[in-house]
Every structure is written in C-alpha cells, then in structure tokens.
Simulated assay, not measured.
Amino acid sequence: MPPPSRACYDSPWKTALTHAFRAFLEFYFPAQCARIDWRRRPRFLDKELAQTGCGAHPAGRVADKLARVHLRDGSEQWVMVHIEVQAQRDDALARRVLAYNYRIFEQYGQPVASLVLLADDSPGWKPSAFHNTVLGTVMGISFATAKLLDHSGRTDELLASGNPFAIVTLAHLRTQQTRGSVADRYAAKWQLTKLLYDRGWRKERIIILFKVINWMMTLPEQWESRYWEAINRLERSRKVEWISPLEESFIEKGRLKGLKQGMAQGLEQGLERGREEGAAQLLERQLAQRSAPYRRR
C-alpha cells in the first residue's frame, strides 16, 4: 500500500492561529497568556510582519504570527507577540528568532515577546536562547518555547480537552506518526473528525477545524473520497448538516491550494539552495582560475 500524500502544515496552522489565538496561548503558553488583557482584542499585523523581512519561510517553518496585545498589569500600553511554529529541526532557529525579534522591535519601538512552538519530531531538540559574548559585550535572546512532542503521551487528555488546539495537536502528531500508512492516517483522521461532532462548538469553529484536519492529514484521492462519503453518512445518521456540498467544495479547494503553495514553497527553497550551491561552485572556479598562473610559476 502506498504511503499517504505529503503532509501540509502551513495553511492549517495559520488558519488555526488566526481563528483561536487566545486558545493557542492558553494551550501552549499559559503563563504568558495569563498576563494578557483579553478584554482588549489583539490586532494581527501579518502584513507588517512581512515588511520587516520576516515573511520568508526557511526550511521547516510553517507558520508565524505577529499580534499587538495589552498587558493586564498596565506595565506596557501594548507589546508585540511574535509566534513561530517550526515543523522540523533547524539549528539556525535561535539565531533567526533573535534577528526577527530585533527587526520587529526596530520597526515598532515596543517590547517584543517571541514564542516558539517546536512541532518537529526530534525529542531532544529544544532551543531557547542565542547569545554571543565578546570583549565585555553580550548580544542575544532567551525566548519561550513549547514542544508539541511533549503531548504525544497525553492522548486521553487531549481527546477530553475542550481547547481546539488539543485537536490541532493530535492532528499534527497523528500526521507525523502515520507517514508510512494510508490506512492508519485515514483511521486517525476519521477519529478526530467524529470528535468535532461531540464538542458542542459553534458551526464556524467546526468548519475551521474540519479544514485544519483535512488540509493537514492529507490522503490519496481514493481515500479522500471515502472520507467525505463517511462524513455524509455520519451527518445523515445524526440528522445534521455541518458540511454542506458547497462548504465541502470550498474546503477541498482550500486544501488543494495549500498543497500547491507547499509544493511551490518547496520548489523555491530547492531553487534557492541550487542558486547558493551554484554561486559557491562559480566562486571556486574563479578562484582556481586566478590561482592557476601562480601554481604554474
């Protein structure tokens, strides 16, 4: 049996973060969440984030978010919260967090909190700081991190949680765990989908989490058709219609768009690496040509 289709993480995480920013912080960063004044609505600054030069996606980074929030203690009128979700190990991550933090601070002149969710599959990788010390000068940053893998042994707790990011976490973990089996991924995807009907959430949240699950836990076309048929049967048996045919088509279009964006992003990263390698090879040839007359002497 062929493996599942390539997983898509970028669009699902961005969608979930935008929909339930407070729930994300409550789930992964409860101490920081408790200090924010949620009576004042956060303002997302994604376009401004791209203008700071933080919009490009290095390997493994699947989502980032910049929000302006107010603190409960009034110590700052408002602060910037930069969220980054990293889906694979990248030894340059801590240095990049320092660069992004400073760029945002330089842009707005306000304190910046950097919060990083490590969604990779390397248990021992938990970067949380980058520092340089030379001749009495210290440059660096320490930042808060959460490790998605730390939740892998808490399945029952996640299944019982009312926080939408418990389901997002399970979807991500199950996607990682079922890379080699279509049948296992289908079973995990169907379990999480049925769970949505038992939560009592409003329709908007259910639709968004449907999108997250469907985009992230990709399946071959035949299995995807089987998935939608199962949803239709479930809705008929429960006499509900959360996912209308029109909504189904929008969700599928969004999933396909996300897959195409992921493929394009991967291609661009490959081309960039190719350009870098080509430039290095060209430099080596130029240096060799310049040094050739000296070697002949």
Score class of each variant (00 low, 15 high):
residue 228 W to H: 04
residue 93 L to T: 08
residue 294 Y to I: 14
residue 284 E to Q: 15
residue 187 A to K: 08
residue 71 L to V: 04
residue 36 I to T: 02
residue 81 V to Y: 02
residue 142 S to N: 10
residue 15 T to R: 04
residue 241 E to W: 06
residue 75 S to W: 07
residue 84 E to C: 03
residue 290 R to D: 13
residue 83 I to M: 03
residue 263 M to Y: 06
residue 209 L to W: 06
residue 291 S to C: 11
residue 14 K to N: 02
residue 174 R to L: 07
residue 199 R to K: 11
residue 101 N to Y: 00
residue 126 K to M: 12
residue 244 S to K: 05
residue 13 W to D: 03
residue 111 P to Y: 02
residue 218 T to K: 03
residue 292 A to C: 03
residue 126 K to A: 15
residue 37 D to F: 08
residue 291 S to N: 08
residue 112 V to W: 00
residue 297 R to F: 07
residue 10 D to L: 07
residue 85 V to N: 02
residue 83 I to Q: 03
residue 162 G to L: 14
residue 103 R to M: 08
residue 156 D to N: 14
residue 242 W to I: 14
residue 287 L to K: 15
residue 15 T to N: 08
residue 116 V to F: 12
residue 177 Q to K: 11
residue 44 F to T: 09
residue 165 F to Y: 09
residue 263 M to A: 09
residue 35 R to P: 06
residue 76 E to K: 13
residue 31 A to N: 10
residue 177 Q to P: 06
residue 249 S to D: 13
residue 186 Y to C: 01
residue 199 R to N: 06
residue 43 R to F: 05
residue 196 L to V: 06
residue 33 C to A: 15
residue 221 E to W: 12
residue 89 R to Y: 12
residue 49 L to G: 01
residue 210 F to V: 07
residue 11 S to C: 07
residue 155 T to N: 06
residue 187 A to S: 12
residue 264 A to N: 03
residue 228 W to D: 03
residue 136 G to S: 01
residue 34 A to D: 04
residue 224 E to A: 14
residue 209 L to I: 15
residue 63 A to Y: 02
residue 36 I to P: 01
residue 144 A to F: 07
residue 292 A to Y: 07
residue 108 Y to E: 01
residue 70 H to C: 13
residue 39 R to E: 15
residue 1 M to T: 13
residue 108 Y to S: 00
residue 227 Y to I: 11
residue 28 Y to R: 04
residue 238 R to S: 12
residue 241 E to I: 15
residue 126 K to F: 12
residue 12 P to M: 07
residue 27 F to E: 02
residue 13 W to Y: 11
residue 141 I to K: 00
residue 43 R to P: 05
residue 106 E to P: 02
residue 207 I to H: 10
residue 125 W to L: 09
residue 95 R to M: 14
residue 215 W to Q: 04
residue 205 R to S: 13
residue 110 Q to E: 14
residue 197 Y to T: 00
